[in-house]
Nucleic acid binder design. Structure first.
Lengths: 135, 135
DNA sequence: GCATAGCCTACCAAGTCTGTGGACTACTTA
DNA sequence: TAAGTAGTCCACAGACTTGGTAGGCTATGC
């Protein structure tokens, strides 16, 4: 399951995608429109900024805005950043790989199956962007 | 990600699948062979028994054993029982559904996408059983 | 130089995950 | 029927994660 934090991140990013090229948007505006606890949202946006997805401006007329065009930001990137691994097992994860003790990956049915699940999921989330989330 | 508990559950079930029709297997034997903390394993097996996947016998010559044939136990069932929802969002889950506030499910890009992910995943785990985990 | 608005640090309550310990109960065998 | 075996149940506990809150600091614009 995606954490609430991830869901908030997607809501905020969707909102910022709609407002793309309209200048900085206040944290408070996003929080109000998307009903997200403001201080929690603040930390999420900061994380997205550090990952180069968002940029911000301080002071009057400031706020947050997308650093890249919505169609350049992959859903998979956001999930990995805020939620963590997409795969169901560490020994099957591409970005968070950890070797599996007591399961030689060559002969493990669960392993093989989870690779299939991973690839099926990646086939979707690697090929969608923020733009695809707008309806 | 699957919890360690889930991974232990699959290891134990795989072992019991191999020993299907050979009579009860001791918790301690499973724990030793699969390197699972014995008391933790105990609670997992009990949970699987309460879900009618395993059965047990007390006293000498006792132990745990599969209640149904390995090919009758779906991987999806075990994941839902031990790990929880398979879907990435509550508003998209079949067995753990919860309505999504602030996201009318008719017009939510994230929602639609996560339905695709869910179906892709279910397409795999609903059609595999313990038997498929044996190599 | 003052108001604005993001930045940063610290903290916290609740819940989940991964276990451990110990007493109790049911069953088998002698 | 007593002894020993093996699952059942209950309580707890430490580490980590989740979902937040509070408040001061810093940069910006007018």
């Amino acid at each position: 399951m995606l954490s609430k934090k991830s869901q908030y991140a997607f809501k905020a990013l969707t909102y910022l995608s709609e407002k793309f090229n309209e200048g900085p948007v206040l944290i408070s505006e996003i929080a109000a429109k998307k009903k997200i606890p403001i201080k929690f949202l603040e930390s999420i946006l900061l994380e997205l900024k550090k990952a180069d997805i968002l940029d911000s401006k301080k002071g009057k007329g400031g706020g947050y805005f997308l650093k890249q065009r919505p169609e350049k930001v992959k859903v998979a990137t956001v999930i990995r950043l805020i939620n963590g691994p997409i795969a169901m097992l560490p020994c099957v994860s591409l970005y968070f790989y950890e070797r599996c003790k007591n399961c030689n990956e060559k002969h493990c049915g669960l392993h093989d199956m989870m690779i299939e699940v991973r690839d099926a999921t990646l086939g979707i989330v690697e090929n969608r962007t923020l733009k695809d989330l707008l309806v």
